[in-house]
């Protein structure tokens, strides 16, 4: 006897909502990209039409989102075992890996072409290289092979102000290179502070995080070393054409605070850290988020003051 019932139970619970496709683009990472690219574009010496500037930032952000989708496609196996990432759309089964790949590739092409049409092809080329660097060099080649993955991945996150500057001027200069170096050197202490108190996740995923391969004492030492290397870059930026007294004051205070935090991380051992539930590491991680925003915020304030005074 055949069953003609229309009530055949079919599981549609796994179907994606629109928000799942947005989550694929890593909107939280995008916010840093938008902000730093915007600052790179606004502090550049060439004024940009507001609509062209808006389009440039929109497609730089979309390019970052595209590389995020490609990262989620390739890293679905790692994401599935990490507590922090297991509810992402691909490991949770709401978006298929092939969909993530197609969205990532499609948005990569769209963002590069639109940035080229809106501004110039040098900026578009750099955006294409940034997507390639994050998706292929970092995610596919190096993330699972070397404990320096964070340092290399940091470079991908450091390109947006350079792309923003290039979108405005069509060229490169010392100032955006220093902005790149600021984010590049800030990423390791920022991320390793997080890795110190999220240890179980990276162990489980078997990602060669510095804490796993070289030990936690070495990670603490590297946090301090990168923070020391970061200071002169942050201060140097203040003496270029985009800097000024506001930026220098902000940079001096925040770098001093960051250095004290990194010093405390270095001085502690695991027993002391476990005793207060990694309070210092958590505080330094939270401060590091503020650190990058206030540096770029101060550059924006300097540019606003220069524009008002001109």
């Amino acid at each position: 006897m055949s069953d003609l019932s229309t009530q055949t139970p079919v599981d549609f619970e796994g179907e994606a909502r629109f928000g799942d496709y947005i989550a694929l683009l890593k909107p939280r990472v995008m916010s840093l990209v938008v902000f730093t690219a915007l600052v790179g574009l606004l502090v550049a010496p060439v004024p940009v039409d507001p609509m062209i500037g808006f389009t440039a930032i929109l497609f730089i952000a979309l390019g970052a989102g595209a590389s995020g989708a490609l990262n989620m496609w390739y890293d679905a196996d790692i994401d599935a075992v990490m507590r922090r990432t297991r509810s992402r759309p691909v490991p949770a089964g709401r978006v298929t890996p092939s969909e993530a790949l197609q969205i990532g590739m499609g948005l990569s092409v769209l963002s590069v072409v639109m940035l080229g049409l809106a501004t110039n092809w040098a900026a578009a080329g750099l955006l294409a290289f940034t997507i390639f660097f994050y998706a292929v060099v970092y995610t596919i080649w190096l993330k699972r092979r070397t404990p320096q993955n964070i340092v290399i991945g940091g470079a991908a996150g450091a390109f947006p102000p350079l792309v923003g500057w290039m979108a405005a001027t069509g060229g490169i200069a010392l100032e955006p290179v220093l902005m790149f170096a600021l984010i590049f050197l800030w990423t390791p202490p920022h991320f390793w502070a997080l890795a110190l108190f999220m240890k179980s996740d990276y162990d489980t995923a078997r990602v060669p995080m510095l804490t796993v391969t070289h030990g936690r004492a070495e990670t603490r030492r590297q946090v301090l070393l990168y923070t020391i290397a970061l200071m002169p870059v942050a201060i140097w930026l203040g003496f270029t054409s985009v800097g000024g007294p506001i930026y220098l004051a902000v940079a001096a205070l925040t770098n001093l605070w960051f250095l004290v935090g990194a010093w405390r991380i270095w001085r502690r051992d695991e027993t002391a850290a476990e005793a207060d539930s990694y309070a210092v590491e958590k505080r330094v991680f939270r401060f590091s988020l503020l650190y990058i925003f206030v540096h770029f915020g101060a550059l924006l304030a300097e540019a606003t003051l220069r524009a008002a005074g001109a």
């Binding site: 549609f12 179907e15 994606a16 909502r17 629109f18 496709y21 039409d49 507001p50 609509m51 062209i52 808006f54 389009t55 929109l58 049409l117 809106a118």
Partner: peptide, 30 residues
């Protein structure tokens, strides 16, 4: 969920058209 996805895609397409239009106007003004 499907309705939400359709609305989302429609809004993205409309937004893209608006951006291309705005960009065209800005380029012509330049």
């Amino acid at each position: 969920r499907r309705f939400g996805r359709n609305v989302g895609v429609a809004l993205c397409l409309l937004g893209f058209c608006a951006v291309v239009f705005g960009l065209t106007i800005a380029k012509i003004r330049q």
